[in-house]
Computed example of a mutant assay.
Amino acid sequence: MSDIIRVLVVDDHLEIRTLLAEYLHKHGMRVETADGGESMRQQLSRASFDVIVLDLMMPGEDGLTLCRNIREKSAIPVIMLTAMGEEADRIIGIEMGADDYITKPFSARELLARIKALVKRSKSMPYQGEANQESKQFSFLNWQLNPIKRELVSDQNTIPLSSAEFRLLTVFLENPKHVLSRDQLTEMTKGHTAGVFDRSIDNQISRLRKKIEIDPKTPEILKTVWGGGYIFTEDVVKI
């Protein structure tokens, strides 16, 4: 397997695409670019990528819409590019499935470091040695967690999980029927986005509920324990 990191940069500004592509390529990465949603989908249909760098503010389909579309089909890590003062949009971006964000103006060096850290974390989650890999295979209700593809699989459906969602769900499946506080979840997931916003854990819980609950507004699987945190209520089987 190649160690070259494959990056897709999606931004409607040619100057930014060119600058980032040249800089990342100079540092050993394989880079493709897209100027919007249509060209992004074409790139994704032709090749696989380790990370997508996605601009938030684009004409037509914006970054939030594209991030949601990506998450419906894939667990590819996404770094969102946002402008200063767009905290609400950054929160929504995390809710839509973005794994990290970086605010403009930013240095290419910082983006390079973020990409390397995110890809390393993403690739290390499913592959942590044979014993750990086996220990992370779980089933509950009619769902089975696939740790290789980071997917939830049932007889009727396959749901991709973002890196943050996968980490969080794995923590719950390893600790079923135990109340876990926000601080515990933040520490146990150890993801960058876990500390981005005060309510980031709540946002990730909300995303998971939309994927596994019959009615996310009245959850029965991931319940809130007022003053305590959250609890995964179902029986879990290690496969």
Rank of each mutant, 00 (worst) to 15 (best):
104 K>R: 15
222 L>H: 03
102 I>L: 12
55 D>A: 06
71 R>M: 06
52 I>L: 10
224 T>M: 08
149 K>P: 05
216 P>S: 11
110 E>T: 08
233 T>R: 02
164 A>Q: 07
103 T>E: 09
32 E>R: 14
74 S>L: 05
116 K>N: 14
205 I>Y: 03
9 V>Y: 04
214 I>W: 06
83 A>R: 07
77 P>Y: 05
3 D>P: 01
90 R>G: 04
44 L>V: 15
191 G>L: 02
42 Q>T: 15
54 L>I: 14
94 I>W: 02
2 S>W: 13
31 V>F: 08
108 A>T: 11
122 S>H: 15
230 Y>G: 01
79 I>R: 04
66 L>C: 05
11 D>N: 10
8 L>P: 00
16 I>N: 13
138 F>Y: 12
110 E>V: 08
150 R>M: 13
67 C>D: 07
181 S>R: 09
236 V>P: 03
208 L>P: 03
94 I>G: 03
100 D>H: 13
24 L>D: 05
171 V>H: 06
70 I>Q: 05
53 V>G: 01
168 L>F: 11
224 T>S: 09
208 L>I: 10
169 L>I: 09
121 R>Q: 13
7 V>Q: 03
127 Y>I: 09
175 N>F: 00
6 R>T: 10
156 Q>E: 12
221 I>R: 04
164 A>V: 14
80 M>G: 01
146 N>L: 11
15 E>M: 14
228 G>I: 11
157 N>E: 15
164 A>F: 12
199 R>H: 15
42 Q>C: 01
4 I>G: 01
56 L>V: 07
218 T>E: 13
60 G>N: 07
122 S>K: 03
89 D>C: 10
89 D>G: 01
150 R>G: 01
